[in-house]
Nucleic acid binder design. Structure first.
Ligand code: FES
Ligand code: FES
Lengths: 135, 135
DNA sequence: ATTATATCCGACTATTGTAATCCGATTTTT
DNA sequence: AAAAATCGGATTACAATAGTCGGATATAAT
């Protein structure tokens, strides 16, 4: 339904929260409670964002997360790609090797759809966490 | 994964096909065979597009479909809305009555996400079938 | 009239992807 | 040593997508 997954929604909420409280290190528990996000699911999401380098983690009793980049350098596109891999409107776009669907290689929508997708990704790529945090 | 549903993919393929062969009336079977789309599923999709007024149908042995509007007036946004109802990035956006999630009404991402969505919809709204058919 | 070919439409099933949970291990401060 | 946090694999629950089935109706050609 052209909607963002909960994972991405939670990711944006969490990064926004961390960005706003950038003076201290933020635990998954705090975000979970403050934002009303299932703890376990959020933890997984934060770990994934960490693995992709968007945030840095500190383990142990005083642990938590901080941003790796400035909020103004962190875009929604970064988050989407970190959490769901390369975004692609059509399945066919994913395959780097061989054909996925029988329409290819004589596909009549591949080019126009790729152009459309790149326009949309440009929108995501120019929307930053800073902008979102500012409301 | 920020991807378009098969329904929308098929809808675009079908409308593009009808637009290109606008000199004659096109049956679901022809589109199904030429584009490699499951017939039953495509039929449903075309009926839905018909109900929403994007195409007109002709029943009977020489029946089929023609576009209601010029390809230059038919956008991807039209197709998405016809096939999936009002698009919305977050579940919260759908509800016109009451609260869907416990974050509302003090939600910190509602406004920025709505702005983001409207930008994306603008991209969809300015991409026409004519443009897609031209490749 | 009959037949062939088309749209129409509800109900159903199968498959996939999302969302969430469970459980245990590791790390680090107190 | 204990408490509080991250880490991470495996599993389950649920929902949405994708596709199918069976039959009804409409229309044109024979
Ligand atoms: S739809 Fe598969 S290659 Fe275009
Ligand atoms: S996330 Fe539900 S109102 Fe914002």
């Amino acid at each position: 339904m052209i909607k963002l997954s909960k994972k991405i929604e939670y990711g944006i909420l969490a990064l926004q929260y961390i960005a706003i409280h950038s003076d201290k290190i933020i635990s998954a528990k705090e975000i979970s409670e403050q934002m009303g996000i299932p703890y376990e699911f959020l933890s997984k999401t934060l770990q994934q964002l960490m693995k992709k380098g968007l945030i840095q983690s500190q383990q142990g009793i005083k642990g938590g997360y901080v941003l790796s980049k400035k909020p103004s350098d962190l875009t929604v596109k970064d988050i989407i790609i970190a959490l769901e891999g390369k975004a692609s409107f059509l399945d066919c776009f994913v395959s780097s090797k061989g054909l996925v669907c029988d329409r290819s290689p004589n596909c009549t929508i591949k080019n126009p759809m790729e152009r459309l997708q790149s326009k949309v990704m440009q929108v995501f790529g120019t929307t930053t966490i800073e902008e979102i945090a500012a409301n």
